[in-house]
Design a protein around this nucleic acid. Structure first.
Lengths: 213, 213
DNA sequence: ATGATAAATTTTGTATACATTTTATAAAAA
DNA sequence: TTTTTATAAAATGTATACAAAATTTATCAT
């Protein structure tokens, strides 16, 4: 797949612009203004706005228009809290289906994560790929989708999560520990590592966000 | 608020029509066909389709159009599984904020649930109101919204859940047990009752769905 | 008859134009 | 001055028309 629908490009662009604070935070976004800004009609704008709203990037207050959803320590805390409960759960279902191919795929991704010079964004994507590969094995589409949505919501925050260089090293260590426990078929331990892994990331993020404000 | 936006009416109507199997299950829904059927242009149809897709009522396969998402035991199982983990969690945060007003509100709703002749749908709404009133007290909007979404997704299944008349009695008993435990400030017990309450509902539903197929 | 290729049809995506609703502004009365 | 009401402006919702894409149908060569 090479070319994309215009609206898809617009969606990616607007998301990026929210990440980069290109879109004003306090003021309501007008459809016509966005329409001019991005060079498309209001129809695809409306579609994308609805999508971004559903994914937590924007908040709407009736007919007063859409506003960029500000970063919020409480929201981050909840998102990571939910993840820390659901991801060990799906890992439990995945366990029995984990074969060498999947474990190999996961290891490959971990190695890619070691490569220097990764952008924060690709780092975040690879990170989710690692977790996702393991979770897919559970064969639980609904549970998986729910977790996937949470990651989407978290993706607004990952830029900050990786601020501490030290954190990345720690995170990688935990990833390998997780794989190791899975290889030994120690489910309980694997779940514990995973839960800790997520909770810690959440705590660091919340602490950082609280200091910012 | 008396009158509603046309799209809002359309949204409610289409959801109802999916519930009542007024919309075909196997075939793809064409925008223009729906446009004629509901007497509006394709623009609001598109909006509603996107919304219903996000809420799990429809599934889309690229440009081949939208299809009604068939009821599925695996999906139901996952939804109730997630709820059984998240709802006791939010109850934990709500506990300390529960005052007499909130408990009274919850009790009022329980009494409304006893009234004879309730439609399946209002029964389901009241049921969620009861849970929701308690969860709101937690003051955790993100966690609450996530749980609320799960209930939306479950609402397609509640018609079946209440098939067994016996179940309603049981469910009410558990509701009162939950309130009682909360009044005594026995969080652990309250959480256990709640988890059981949700798991049981899920199991009954899954068993029913499996027998149907 | 079967497979590949090209034309035709269908369907979705987007732009423009209009209708409705909401919000802001101004004028008038208390 | 303050409040109320009427008017004007702006913004969103919806319809129609057109463009692009995909699917289906028909045609042709093997």
């Amino acid at each position: 797949m090479i070319s994309k629908q215009p609206a898809e490009t617009l969606y990616i662009q607007m998301k990026q612009d929210i990440r980069d604070n290109k879109l004003p935070l306090g003021t309501a976004l007008k459809q016509e203004q966005l329409s001019n800004q991005y060079g498309v009609s209001r129809i695809p704008i409306r579609d994308v706005l609805q999508r971004l709203k559903n994914e937590g990037w924007l908040i709407t207050s009736g007919k007063r228009g859409a506003m960029v959803n500000p970063l919020n320590a409480t929201e981050a805390e909840d998102l990571y809290l939910i993840r820390s409960h659901l991801e060990p759960l799906i890992l439990g279902y995945a366990m029995t289906h984990l074969n060498h191919q999947i474990m190999g795929k996961a290891t490959d991704i971990l190695e890619q994560l070691e490569e220097p010079g990764l952008t924060i964004q690709t780092h975040g994507e690879l990170n989710w790929q690692f977790h996702g590969v393991l979770y897919q094995a559970a064969n639980r589409p609904t549970l998986f989708n729910n977790i996937n949505n949470l990651h989407q919501l978290c993706s607004r925050y990952i830029g900050f999560q990786n601020m501490e260089l030290n954190y990345q090293k720690n995170s990688q260590k935990e990833h390998y520990q997780l794989l190791s426990a899975l290889q030994k078929k120690q489910l309980g331990q694997a779940q514990q590592i995973l839960k800790q892994h997520i909770s810690q990331a959440g705590q660091k993020l919340v602490a950082y966000l609280n200091n910012q404000m």
